[in-house]
């Protein structure tokens, strides 16, 4: 690319640790969610800061996905407030809520690609719905997103049933990124991928976060992901956030579950 008067060297975006007054993009206060007589989480508080990659851990069945779905509005909550970009989701008009929904993207665990559409058409679904742009730009942008997530161009015209697990995750990420969201929710992005694929996916998320300035909310079990890409980790147990902070905080914690999680045999192997 030609550069004339200004010679800017590409620098890393400031990581959240560098910034003191960090903007909170998701603020959850006093959240209670339950089904029937069962209470899954109670009095749960959580902050997600702009530009960070938050890794969200917890034992199976503690409600990690439920919390994600509650923030997204897919699961009804009993009490509590959820603010996204400083706006209380309950107090929003349907139209403003729609505007917020365009500023986040979601990668579901199974990909959730529309099976009757090709990868390219999948990526174009939100674009067609919300952008008024020419067909040419629509095609180019879809191809751009498909390349950004590391898929080959010939994957664009394939149907989800023709893709491998890793490709489905990538295609789904491309769709999540279609509208250039500010927050991306990833539900176990590396589960079901081989270690090489998982590592590549971690690198991809970290690259995208740096170039696009994304805020990433990542539910994961993958200790390698937690170590390599997450700026901060929040742990869910007993219906509450029991600890949050960088990996060192987690390692130093005395909570029995955290000790078992971060000092287990597998964790030591990942740390080494």
């Amino acid at each position: 690319m030609a550069e004339t008067s200004h010679s800017a060297t590409p620098t890393r975006r400031p990581t959240p640790q560098d910034v003191n007054d960090r903007e909170v993009v998701i603020r959850v206060r006093g959240l209670e969610v339950g089904f029937g007589t069962k209470t899954i989480m109670k009095d749960l508080d959580l902050d997600v800061y702009r530009g960070e990659i938050l890794g969200f851990v917890g034992a199976s069945g503690t409600g990690k996905s439920v919390l994600t779905r509650a923030i997204l509005g897919l699961v009804p909550k009993r009490t509590g407030t959820i603010e996204v970009f400083g706006e209380d989701l309950d107090a929003l008009s349907p139209q403003s809520r729609k505007a917020i929904e365009q500023r986040w993207g979601v990668l579901f665990q199974q990909g959730a690609l529309f099976s009757s559409l090709t990868v390219k058409q999948n990526v174009q679904v939100p674009m067609r719905e919300y952008l008024s742009i020419s067909e040419r730009l629509l095609d180019e942008l879809a191809m751009l997103k498909i390349e950004m997530v590391g898929l080959k161009p010939d994957a664009a015209d394939k149907f989800p049933s023709d893709l491998s697990g890793g490709m489905i995750k990538r295609a789904s990420l491309a769709r999540a990124l279609a509208l250039d969201p500010e927050i991306v929710f990833l539900d176990e992005p590396t589960s079901g991928l081989d270690p090489i694929g998982a590592g590549e996916f971690d690198d991809l998320i970290s690259t995208l976060q740096q170039t696009l300035g994304l805020t990433v909310f990542m539910v994961t079990h993958d200790l390698d992901s937690l170590h390599s890409v997450c700026d901060r980790i929040a742990a869910l147990a007993e219906g509450k956030i029991i600890a949050s902070g960088p990996i060192d905080t987690m390692l130093a914690s005395n909570h029995p579950w955290l000790r078992a999680y971060f000092h287990g045999k597998r964790a030591r192997a990942a740390l080494a």
Partner: peptide
């Protein structure tokens, strides 16, 4: 013609470098 970008902010420059226009071959 010669066309150049000037005065891009660092974060915009990163993005422009990452995007780097290229034609996609249309089958």
């Amino acid at each position: 013609q010669r066309a150049d970008f000037v005065g891009a902010k660092p974060e915009h420059r990163i993005l422009l470098d990452e995007i780097a226009y290229r034609g996609f071959q249309q089958l």
